[in-house]
Amino acid sequence: MTAVQTPATGTWVPDTAAVHEALVAGARPKPQGPLAASATFGWRTLLRIKHVPEQLFDVTAFPVMMTLIFTLLFGGALAGTVDAYIQFFLPGILVQSILMITMYTGVALNTDIEKGVFDRIRSLPVWRPSALVGALLGDVLRFTLASAVIITLGMLLGFRPDGGALGVLAAVGLLLVFAFALGWIWTFLALRLRTPNAVMGWSMLVITPLTFGSNIFVDPSTMPGWLQAFVDVNPVSHLVTAVRGLMHGEAAGGDVLMVFAWAALLVAVLGPLTMRRYGNRD
């Protein structure tokens, strides 16, 4: 039994027998568990990349531009030579680029709300955080891709990590953990604010001091004391120090632990706040 369709005119004669059959044939399996559902939502994010590949442009073009500008324009002035600066700077710009693009997670969620997809998802009998966890996991793929682009570009510009491939992989892994945790700030904002533009605006307001008020670009010892104090407690500074250490094969155990602690704290505080909001958004 097949419904008759002439796509050219859009005329469709409903075969109610087929509809009826499809309806009653619908089994009711047990819905996916938390992990499987998160993976399925991650798959959705990948499907979206397939259909809207433009979103990868933001992820790659911006970091490339930033890397080139800072290395070639300021590198010599800041560290004597471009080559010396990129050894210091590349891990930092990698961190900044990835943290900047985590903001798109919030923007994407807000778009879902605006379009009504969010309500469909919330009406499903699956573990509620799985939609957000899945989206963040799917985004980890984008972050990985951006990391690969930046590191490759850095190598072309003369970046030579002493920690070797293993050190670089460990550094990227740590960065992804932190990026996932930071994503909860954006999902929280996405649920509080009305439009994707507002989410973008507020996210910039949060991310700019976090990344610039850190040791990404320069050694903080030249900064005024109050700013040094901020840089010292800024989790991004710990992340950058840890990523530098891992890439260059220097000990960074303390900072790595601090990054894990911050990541755990972000998820522990913002996860429940976000989910409370998620469960009862008007």
Partner: peptide, 14 residues
Amino acid sequence: VSLTGQFASLDEDL
């Protein structure tokens, strides 16, 4: 329960 229409939408990009 299932929702349709303005209550709940599909992902238009997929």
